[in-house]
Design a protein around this nucleic acid. Structure first.
Lengths: 337, 337
DNA sequence: CTGAAAGCGCTTACAG
DNA sequence: CTGAAAGCGCTTACAG
């Protein structure tokens, strides 16, 4: 069943059928009705391969998501799709492996599906360079800042990771914690982890405290076992620690389990806080103290910015959206010494 | 950059370039080397739209996943892809919305990408009928049984949902629980929920107990808030309940939070158990007692079965894989009355 | 082993 | 408003 079959049965040429399918106004009501009826009858769907092969530009925005296990991305993606729809764009979602090159994938997608813009959820900073401009369409990085990259067509929307992490450290210090350990991502590939760590170091030094990177920071995958293993390591390298700051909620949950398996209570013996503010954080016991990244706000700003770039041919912008420290029950206020 | 440009630069015809790309043996080593070098030089990737438009059959298996929030599916999918790769098939993954029609989507995918087989993760039983045979390729339903559907080309691999649920009820009864409530999916669309519920009813009746469906069973979405809301309702309709059996771990986590918010402890005041055995279940406090669906085993059996159907042109088979009751800390043994 | 050519199912100027 | 035709970038018989 192809457009040709529809055309024959309806008594029109394939061009007219194509116009009906693509809502081209240059079709008589009679032809439209007749052709629609035949399409309906056979529940015909045009072949997207042929469509994309020929079409100049799709009416869509491509979204490239790194990893399917990331609960924050899943939430942000949902909001992005809603916002895109509201702005009159289709969204096309491509999930890729955590270790795949998102920029290579974007290149292929642009060639084959000709989107009006590309949104990246998750990024390896090593993959992003000036050659991104070759894509020829505005791009947007979500939840990571690209302000430091200075790539002409790459906008970004994120929280101020440095400030947010500093805020959390200030919160821990205010609660009397002095021996604090950190679990984050790989500092070479993860831009947000670096930013957050520098926020932590800054805030500590404001209080006259130094951070021993080798001992107090353990890089881990953003997974439950990743957080678990990192916590076990920190228990060795930071004796007497009273608080742990994990740069994702999932890692925090892993860390909490590790603490418990070592006979430590949370928060009575060790306080734990996370980052992201995923839905799950509020369902745990104790509720997790964390930094909430506002998925809704990020998505609406992101789509607005990208659409502006697309329609006005304007340059990249980098926007910070407000984070929020969600006070849960996982950080204890220590008594004054 | 197209196959034509590569051909020109390499000094061969496009057909030869195509043969190199598709590892067709009828190419001289010299031509192969020369063309490979040019492809390498430009990092050329053929347009998949054109490829699929023309190609008889891809060397792939399509996987259609309902929903991106399902942690069990994410795990099973990972294993499926590994198994497919090992069997010499590519996997092409298509995520669709929870309420979208997976069979309609499969129809389109088969037309456009000509996979050798289709795997469904998640299904609405209302969408499956004898017309699935029109797809013309073997299909496989994962984690739900299709034994009752009698569709010629639809195999399935799942745990015995009825037996597994009965086993859990037996476990609760053995622990002294008598007032038990249930949270599951919509009984009309969810085959596993029906099967599990019937297992629960059967086991209760073996012990001379009846189930008041309207009061003791609350259908919910498979989400945290879904479980939460269902639990709040059960607190009204089943006064004095001592145990809750949720048909997914995520719903169980939601239910636990609801109980706590009503001042009840788990498991001291109310016991809770789940279904699925996702990684997270073992990281909670208390660890969740649940039925583990063996993702690894299901994936390896599923792919083996599907590949057999594909290569031997054999008919559908329905296999049950062993479940496992994971004893956590969320079910209390009640003292003898 | 290689090339020339047809054709996959669409879209889109171009005429009328 | 409609049709005839070119062409998107590939694959694949068919000749040689």
């Amino acid at each position: 069943m192809t457009i040709k079959d529809i055309a024959r049965e309806a008594g029109y040429a394939v061009g007219t059928v194509s116009r009906v399918i693509n809502n081209n106004p240059n079709v008589s009501p009679a032809a439209r009705a007749r052709i629609r009826a035949v399409i309906e009858k056979y529940n015909f769907r045009p072949n997207t391969n042929a469509k994309h092969l020929k079409q100049q530009a799709s009416q869509g925005i491509a979204m490239i998501v790194k990893g399917t296990h990331n609960m924050l991305f899943a939430l942000v993606l949902e909001k992005l799709q809603a916002q895109c729809g509201a702005a009159g764009y289709n969204s096309m979602v491509y999930y890729i492996d955590e270790q795949d090159n998102e920029v290579d994938r974007a290149r292929q997608i642009c060639r084959e599906h000709k989107p009006h813009g590309v949104i990246f959820l998750g990024s390896d900073r090593n993959h992003f360079g000036p050659d991104l401009e070759e894509l020829g369409v505005p791009c947007l990085l979500m939840t990571n800042s690209a302000a430091g990259e200075a790539i002409e067509n790459l906008s970004s929307v994120s929280v101020d990771d440095t400030a947010a992490a500093a805020r959390m450290v200030a919160y821990l210090l205010d609660h009397g914690h002095r021996r604090i350990a950190f679990i984050g991502g790989d500092l070479v590939s993860s831009q947000p982890s670096s930013a957050r760590l520098s926020g932590c170091i800054g805030e500590l030094s404001r209080h006259g405290m130094a951070l021993n990177l080798a001992a107090q920071y353990v890089p881990a995958r953003y997974t439950l076992p990743g957080g678990y293993a990192a916590m076990e390591q920190l228990l060795q390298t930071v004796p007497g620690l009273t608080a742990v700051f994990a740069f994702s909620d999932i890692m925090a949950i892993g860390a909490i389990r590790a603490l418990r398996d070592h006979g430590l209570r949370v928060p009575e013996d060790v306080s734990v806080c996370g980052f992201d503010g995923i839905e799950l954080a509020a369902y745990l016991a104790p509720r997790l103290t964390t930094i909430r990244q506002p998925a809704d706000r990020m998505a609406s700003r992101g789509v607005a910015m990208l659409v502006h770039c697309i329609e006005q041919h304007s340059g990249a912008v980098h926007e910070l959206v407000p984070y929020e420290l969600l006070e849960g029950e996982s950080v204890l206020r220590l008594p004054d010494p």
